[in-house]
Amino acid sequence: DKIVFAIGGSPQSLQGQTAQEFTRRLQERLGDGVEVEYYDSGQLGDERQLVQRLRMGTVDLAAISSIMSSIAPEFALFDLPFLVKNRDHLKRIDSEIVMTDLAANAAEQGLKIVSTWENGFRHITNNNHPIVTPSDMEGMRIRTPQSEWRTSMFSAWGANPTPMAFSEVFVGLQTGVIDGQENPLTNIYGARFQEVQNYLSLSSHVYSPIWLTAGTGRWDSLSDEVKQAIVDVAAETQDWALVRGAELDEELLVQMKNSGMEVNEVDREAFVEASKSIYQTFASQVPGGEQLVERSLTLAND
C-alpha cells in the first residue's frame, strides 16, 4: 500500500522543508507496511491540478495554499490584509475557525483539510524607495499572484498589481518591467530577489497558510489507523513548521541585509486604514463573511 503526497513548491522553500519533515515522520510512524511517496516542485502538477487529482483519488495528500479561496470563497479570509497578527494568533484561528468552519466549507467541495502549515508572512520588495505608507506605492508595478483578492488589495493601496510567470520575475525586476514583488522571505531568498531589489519593506500584509489536504472520497477509504497516523503526524509537523518559519524569518532577514537591501518597517495603521474596502467586499461577497472577520480579529486579543 502507498500514500502519494505532492506539493507544488520547491524542496528549499518552507513548504518543501515542512513536507519533507512530514514525509519522514509519517514514514517512520507507518513503518514498512505503507510506503509514503513524496513529490515536490510541481512534478505531479501545480496546485490547481493537485486539487483535481485529489478529487479523482490519483493523489492522496497535497499541500494547497492560495488556490483554496477560488474553491471555497470563505478561505479568502486569509487574503485579507493584516488579519493574522502573529503565529500564536494563527494557531487560535486555526483551531477555532479553520478546522471547524472552513474545513466544513472545503468538505462541501470534496476536500478534507487535515492540517494548517505555513508559507510565511508576505513582505514587499521594490527598487524605487522604502514603502512606509500605501501612498509610497502609487503607480508602482508590483508583481502579485493571479488571485483576485491579492490584486484588488494592491489596487486599493494605489499600486499597479501586475501578474507575471514566476520564472520571469527575476529578470523582470532587473530590467524594470516591474518595480517590485511580494512574497514570504523564504521565497524571496530562494529566487535570489535580494540581488536585484534595493528595498525590503516588512509589511507582513498577508500570512499565507498552506493546507495539508486530502480528497474526501479517498480519505474515507483509508483505514482508521492510517488516518490517525496522518492526523497526528500532521499536527506535530504544524508545530515544527511554525517554529521553523519563525527561525527562517530571523535568519533570512540578516541575509537580506547582508546582501545590501535597505530594510524598513511599514506604518501598519495607515495600511489597515487603506484596506477597509477589501474587508467590506469580503463581508458583502462571502457568505457569513462579516462574522468570520469579527471572530478572527477577536482571537487576536487573547
Binding site: Q52, R55, M56, Q146
Partner: peptide
C-alpha cells in the same frame, strides 16, 4: 469523464 470533476472549479482571476 473528468468534466464532472472540473465543474467544481473556476479560473482564479475570473471566477
Amino acid at each position: 469523464q473528468v468534466m464532472e470533476i472540473l465543474a467544481w472549479d473556476a479560473l482564479v482571476s475570473l471566477p
